[in-house]
């Protein structure tokens, strides 16, 4: 019976090896290129906020059906999503930190950037509001008040788009956050909201994740973003870029561009604006405009003269 068991184990192993070989072969075929894209897989690395709100699952079925392809959406946070793309591990990136996107473009890793959609950031905290920031018109004043009061503040601390925005805000406020009251969680937005909720702390959140989680937590919006007439500095624009096939020749550029074309089309932009959680719109489309902003295609401040830097 020992032999039987060995045979069984050996068969399992052989099966696994065979299936591995099959997959590797299949993907090589893909990168070889061909007439159609059907059957191929598009790897999208993106932020936790687009994924955790359920938006991508809600709209991707349409794209998959239209092209007969599969979209692998990997929710990583802006920093990690760009890093995966830098390593050639994804075909298209959807993130929300223009500064990091511009660096990515300047370094040659990304091409064909489009503005995709926006929502905004909000500063949330406990209703008791120990730092007294409720209704402040300036996000930086609010952060300064939190720092002065040494009220607990939860930071993402994960190099995500939200974390980048938060650090920019502290810088704009002229305050160096630190001390016992300032905690870096190193987690996604939802978890950071939970931590803030448990500790009665303030945090910076994108509106989408906050809305989709509001029923679970006791935090409330204390400083609004631009969607509700808050300061413009809290705007949260999402961009989408294809990985440069000139740098990573295995990137599925055809399909990436098909995806970018699809998601920036009027129909899908409409679907994005119609997507609701708890009866509220989470994302506002930005790709379709009578007067396109050509700055969306290039890094901030880019001009052909300075391209040699």
């Amino acid at each position: 019976m020992l032999i039987h068991r060995r045979r069984f184990v050996a068969a399992l192993g052989a099966g696994a090896v065979a299936s591995t070989a099959g997959c590797a072969g299949g993907s090589q075929e893909e990168s070889g290129g061909g007439a159609g894209v059907a059957g191929e897989t598009l790897t999208l690395t993106t932020t936790t906020s687009t994924y955790d709100t359920g938006l991508l699952d809600a709209i991707h079925g349409d794209f998959e059906e239209m092209y007969g392809v599969t979209v692998d959406a990997v929710a990583q946070g802006t920093g990690a999503a760009l890093e995966s793309a830098r390593n050639g591990d994804s075909d298209v990136v959807m993130v929300h930190a223009r500064g990091l996107e511009d660096e990515f473009l300047r370094n040659g890793y990304g091409v064909n950037r489009r503005d995709l959609m926006f929502n905004d950031f909000v500063i949330v905290g406990p209703e008791s509001d120990p730092a007294g920031i409720q209704g402040m018109a300036s996000a930086t004043d609010a952060l300064t008040a939190i720092a002065d009061a040494q009220a607990p503040f939860v930071s993402r601390g994960d190099n995500s788009g939200t974390h980048t925005k938060e650090l920019n805000l502290w810088e704009a406020a002229g305050t160096e956050p630190g001390g016992d009251w300032y905690q870096e969680t190193g987690t996604g937005m939802g978890e950071a909201l939970n931590v803030a909720n448990q500790q009665g702390a303030y945090t910076l959140s994108d509106r989408g994740t906050f809305i989709s989680q509001r029923s679970e937590i006791d935090l409330t919006i204390l400083v609004q973003g631009p969607i509700e007439d808050g300061p413009e500095i809290l705007a949260n624009p999402y961009g989408i870029m294809a990985v440069n096939p000139g740098v990573h020749d295995n990137a599925n550029y055809d399909l990436a561009m098909a995806y970018i074309g699809w998601i920036t089309s009027p129909g899908v932009q409409e679907s994005i604006s119609e997507y609701q959680v708890n009866g509220e719109q989470l994302f506002f489309p930005r790709a379709v405009s009578e007067n396109p902003d050509f700055q969306q295609y290039v890094p901030e401040g880019w001009s052909s003269d300075s391209s040699d830097e």
Binding site: S19, T20, T43, D89, N250
Partner: peptide, 10 residues
């Protein structure tokens, strides 16, 4: 890298 194994069960 050439085997395209990233983000797969393998």
């Amino acid at each position: 890298g050439a085997l395209d194994l990233i983000f797969t069960k393998q």
